[in-house]
Simulated scan of single mutants.
Amino acid sequence: MEMKKYIEDGAKKAGNNKALAKFLNQSETILSDVKAGKKGLNDAACIKLADLIEVNPLYVIAASNLVTEKDEEKRKIFKSCFTRAASVAVAALIFAGSSMTSSPAQAQSQKTGVNSIYIM
């Protein structure tokens, strides 16, 4: 995701661009430059923004660095943050889905509403 979208989401949560700038301890001019792709935010501001918009801070830090980074090797590293995090999210969804699968006994219990314990 682009920093522009993060800034827009942050402004909505904060109320407006001025409130977001104050919250992030940045000037409105800097936020405009970040939104226009001319500058990035420092890591602390990225983390505050991520917390505000409820996004993984690594996404915002990586997106911010991608705005200004010219070295292609470093850009690849920042871009990998998005693919790596997406892979982890997919794995978590798969795990959550598999842990929600019930055993035949649990399924029968849910179906009948009867839980039984047999002691021999």
Rank of each mutant, 00 (worst) to 15 (best):
M1L: 12
K5P: 00
Y6W: 09
Y6T: 02
I7F: 05
I7L: 08
E8F: 12
D9T: 03
G10S: 07
K12D: 04
A14V: 05
G15F: 04
N16C: 02
N16H: 05
K18N: 09
A19L: 15
L20M: 10
L20Q: 03
F23I: 02
N25R: 08
S27N: 05
E28T: 15
I30K: 15
L31N: 08
L31F: 12
S32W: 12
S32R: 09
D33L: 15
A36C: 01
G40H: 05
G40C: 04
N42A: 07
A44H: 07
A45V: 08
A45Y: 04
I47F: 06
I47E: 10
E54A: 07
E54P: 01
E54K: 02
V55F: 09
P57Y: 10
V60H: 06
A62T: 02
A62N: 05
A63E: 07
A63R: 04
L66F: 10
K70P: 01
D71F: 08
E72Q: 13
F78W: 11
F78C: 09
K79A: 15
K79F: 08
C81M: 14
C81P: 00
T83Q: 12
A85E: 12
V88L: 14
V88M: 13
A89Y: 10
A91V: 09
A92S: 12
S99T: 12
S99M: 12
M100E: 13
T101Q: 10
S102V: 12
S102Q: 05
S102T: 14
S103F: 02
A105V: 15
A105Y: 09
Q108V: 14
S109D: 15
T112P: 00
T112H: 02
T112N: 03
N115H: 11
I117V: 14
Y118T: 11
